[in-house]
């Protein structure tokens, strides 16, 4: 039986973790490679790195990070942030990433999704969407709007319509990131996740708001997500990946515990 995936998200700026990450028995709190290895050893299913560096120097540093992660971590991992064309995607894949995440650049130029799907495969092309709750209207029939540039700019696109368009253009998976829930640790945006998951036929990864294992349970069952992204709750050492997975298993969610 297919298991539900727990994916850890790491924000990287100029080769270091942007949020300080606390691990139980390590002193280096900013090394993304070390963090990745810790989670891998603890049974994490997948990793996502978001490169939040703006400069081109930073991009080269990111390639080094990807190379180093790939040399130690033998689970799938994707990289997002600033991917504007197939060349960017290929460089990251060449360095060892499994998949790439496109976000703002795909909103501005939707063909980016189909170009990536064609060049690196649908299954390696992930569409990440930052979503804001708005009033239901003719412009936003789903009651959710796409935002870009790290949540700073509203895109005037309905979130559900964008999800369907992304699938049609060849995205292999969707990341549903709720701007409202992000960083609150109050739980995922369940209604949004469920709405999109029921509408598309590709896997959906829920993101934003995880603080407790209960939140993950909720989004994987009621929210109908195929995978859950976690950040703070594992970065700050509140829970280990193993604890989360064992608890989910005890509540009847099928997860990977043999590794």
């Amino acid at each position: 039986m297919l298991t539900k995936r727990i994916i850890a998200c790491l924000d990287v700026r100029a080769g270091r973790l942007a949020k300080s990450v606390r691990f139980l028995d390590t002193k280096d709190i900013g090394d993304p490679v070390k963090a990745a290895k810790e989670y891998y050893d603890d049974g994490l299913d997948e990793l996502v790195f978001y490169d939040i560096t703006a400069s081109s120097d930073g991009r080269d540093i990111m390639l080094d990070v990807v190379e180093n992660v790939a040399a130690q971590v033998y689970i799938p991992f994707s990289v997002g942030g600033g991917i504007r064309n197939v060349e960017d995607a290929n460089r990251l894949l060449g360095a060892g990433a499994e998949k790439i995440n496109v976000n703002s650049a795909a909103v501005q130029r939707p063909e980016l999704i189909s170009e990536c799907a064609l060049a690196i495969g649908t299954q390696n092309t992930v569409l990440s969407m930052d979503i804001l709750k708005v009033r239901e209207s003719r412009e936003f029939p789903s009651g959710y709007e796409i935002v870009i540039d790290g949540g700073r700019k509203r895109a005037s696109i309905d979130a559900l319509q964008w999800a369907l368009r992304g699938e049609e253009l060849g995205a292999g998976e969707l990341v549903i990131n709720s701007i409202d829930a992000d960083g609150t640790r109050d739980g995922y945006e369940i209604a949004l996740t469920r709405m999109i998951s029921e509408a598309v036929s590709i896997p959906v990864i829920a993101s934003g708001g995880a603080g407790e294992p209960e939140h993950i349970l909720e989004v994987l069952t009621e929210g109908k997500a195929d995978a859950a992204l976690v950040a703070s709750m594992v970065h700050y050492g509140d829970y280990t990946v193993r604890e989360i997975k064992e608890w989910l298993q005890s509540r009847g969610v099928n997860v990977r515990l043999r590794y």
Partner: peptide, 8 residues
């Protein structure tokens, strides 16, 4: 969902 993605 299709593709079948994940751990099985």
């Amino acid at each position: 969902k299709i593709p079948h993605i994940g751990w099985n």
